[in-house]
Nucleic acid binder design. Sequence first.
RNA 1: GCUGCGGUGGUGGAAUGGUAUACACGACGGACUUAAAAUCCGUUGCCCUUUAGGGCGUGUGGGUUCGAGUCCCACCCGCAGUACCA
Length: 927
Amino acid sequence: MSSFNPKEFENKWKEKWLSEKLYKASVDKSKKKFYSLYSFPYPSGAGLHVGHVEGMVANDIVARYYRMKGYNTTLPMGWDSFGLPAENYAIKTGIPPKQSTEEVIPSFIDQINNVGISVDWDKEVGAHRPDYYKWTQWLFIQLFKNGLAYKANVRVNWCPKDQTVLANEQVINGRCERCDTPVEQKEMSQWQFKITAYADRLHHDLDKVDWPESTKLMQRNWIGKSEGTTVNFKIKAAENEVGSFEIFTTRIDTIFGCTYTALSPENQILQQIKDNISNWSDVEAYINQARNKTDLQRQTDKEKSGVKLEGVMAINPFNNQEVPIYVVDYVLNTYGTGAIMAVPAHDERDMEFALKFDIPIKNVIIPTQQEYISYIARKWSNDFDKFLTQIQKFNPVYIKKTNDEVLFKFNAEFIDEFIEYATDSVEGQYAWHDAVSESEAVIVFGNDKDEFGGTDVARIPKFLEDERTWLKMKDFEEGVRQYKSLWEMLYNSDYKEKVCPTNYGTLINSDKFDGLSSQEAASKMQEWLEKEGIGSKKTTYRLRDWLVSRQRYWGCPIPIVYDPQGNPHALEEKDLPLLLPEDVDFKPTGESPIARSESFKKLAEEKYGKGWHFEVDTMDTFVDSSWYFLRYCSPDATDVFARTEDMNYWLPTDLYMIGVEHTVLHCLYSRFFTKFLYDQKLINFDEPFYKMRHMGLILGSDGRKMSKRWGNVINPNTEVEKYGADTLRMYEMFMGPLEDPKPWNDRTESGVFRFLSKVWTLNDKVAESIDNENATKQQRIVNKLVKKISDDIDDLSFNTAVAKFMEATNSLASFEKVDRLSWSVFLRLLAPFAPFITEELWNLNGFEYSIHTQSWPEYNSSLNIEEQVTIAIQINGKLRATLNIDFDSEESSVVEKAMILDQVKKFVVGEPKKVIYIKNKVLNIVI
RNA sequence: GCUGCGGUGGUGGAAUGGUAUACACGACGGACUUAAAAUCCGUUGCCCUUUAGGGCGUGUGGGUUCGAGUCCCACCCGCAGUACCA
């Protein structure tokens, strides 16, 4: 037969499948369903890239597998077509986004079909089409009616280049996610969705879904749930109480260590008590300065800053101690209560601030006794080597040595012995030494180096208030003088963690709570607070409401109309969709482009009367993509966003392939919408995506991210042209684990082409009847393959599946003839991976069309029995020989056979101590 | 800093506590060819050795086990997310 030339048949099958709608799936309650979802692609002018292909092929293999297993399977596709790139393209070229978008979509569809993705095209949707965004608007209105969409004046992130508002999530390191421009702060009235109302459920329900743990964790971090306590602090001016404020803390157990409190610059209480603040002008100046700082500046300002409020003090309700109040910009108004109690001894930020402003530091926690104690010793004299040998007697568990430094750890029980030893070794060695007390420190500082810290052996005290130690050291060491206190010196040394322990432990200096563990103390303190009515337990979230207004043209219009007084009203359902006007100049000016549309203005006045006008902002495109998987269920519905019956049948999705970069935002928003609709009783599930997996980034052959800049971009079209779709598909699956980033390699790709050519050639050997013995051998080969491939698809372990196909092909190729029955099994197994070549060979062999609607081969466990196996013979765990034995042989017969091997006789003299036999695997003789 | 993931030949990568390096690429040798490409066959972790064989090997150091890439402890390095979140 001819050589393997995919061009000769790929097009033929592609067109046949499409015209027959081979992959169409409708609701059929008599069958189990499988919903394979690929993330809503953005139809960019650059076309499909190899990363899309990777994810789609994974979706496709699983979909084809389930289809063959008899599931009613759908793999829908649509377009996340609103968004900045099309608008920016329009600004550059003058071509309207609607036109450019509609022009690219057909080529996307074509490319997807060319790689043989089994898409159910009857379900196609596009976010920019009125029949879709009518329902995006409808959903907005439902949120509005339920108080979950509201307009508020907020300080927003503003990108000066894109001239638009950005959600917090779209700000990366203080820069715009898209164009990398530093983000500015701007006060604006903006629409927001109250996603925070769902924070707890969004956090909690992650337990229900099968997602990579790391993804769940990222999402949990984003929601940032933390459980803590609020406490009311009274404010005193002179002898009068002038107000109070609430602080939030997760470490109520440290409250006796509170030596100051701090308010965020935006905290409203400041305005209320300003008459009592004697240095108000300084405070006000600081507040204004903080307000003007961008997030980027706040982040880069490492130095703590703040102003003390003169004339007022706060009262710690636990000990009635008066502590100063500061206004600082390291306290955020958007988290907790915008006020904190500061405990320098147990919080790094508070410690840094306290050191800078000379605020007392009070230790109230002894960390839970550690099993090991670490020491660092630096070389101080020639006796250092002797010192090193002698520390062996403390049984150190770990020693790291460099030329002049040693780090070692030993069991805490040796502490006293060590203090004694260190004292003896170091005394008189040009060193100063002080063992402060049993429970505190060994501090040994050498003086034979110019700089402080050149030599030391130290166990750092848990609470350092020993002025004596400090003064002595200060006399002693030149270097110490640069620090104001022992705290500061040690905090800036290797012993940071020792002087500022931030973990839980046992309370000290805390009155009646002394001796309790952090956990016990916390609950007793909370109880007391609640009884006194001055505090309570509180859960806070880092998550903030979702800002959806965008001052851009190419997005879904917000379905709100304002009356002449400026009050917002939701549009009625019969007036939807509110069409995106086309008489618009989309050049960005900072104002929404739609504001300049005459037809838009006119429409509002005609419909509602003079002075009425529509909202001119459009929605964040994440709104469009938060419900597309629902629309796929009923893409033709005109009276509802999707039919309840259809959604309840198809959802939740059974496999969602999406890049890891989209998981935090898109998935969070989609989950929010789903939960809202569940609460509205429109659907009966409250998590949209059951199983989710990610595809790793495909890098250029130089190991860098694919980019025009590096000239390392691989275009799937070119690869299909060169090798055919099946090769591209199988190569991308063979590259490595699905979720890993992996570089492109042309050579490996051509290796996959060689493999498919081998399959093609092997087809020539297929014979109607071959002898029984060889037929059985081949049936065993493919039978084993059935199990391996099924398992690998279940695990999404496609790289190993491809390897197994290669192995099986090599085995079959060693036969004169190939058994037709085995061949039909082999082709069906390969069909999800290489749909074109398998359909062609299936047809050439005269099997019933189409291979893709055939049933998945069954694994026959009785066929699997092996006659012979090779086992390893080990002596003391070391491989010395291998041995062929009958399958499932008894231990005694195996030992007998092993003992007469030369390799064994050589090592085993007399009776072995022990013999371990693992059936069909290994025999280990211990001598 | 914190959190998570990872570290295996020249390369991409395999390996339910049981023969480490499957499969593929590359390299080397050979066949075919006037030649090249393609194709086919063989070799390919490192070191010693003529063969036979031996020693060493999954980032480092310990531990558990008859047996560790895999489990435990500590450390080093890389990648990703996140960053004044109280």
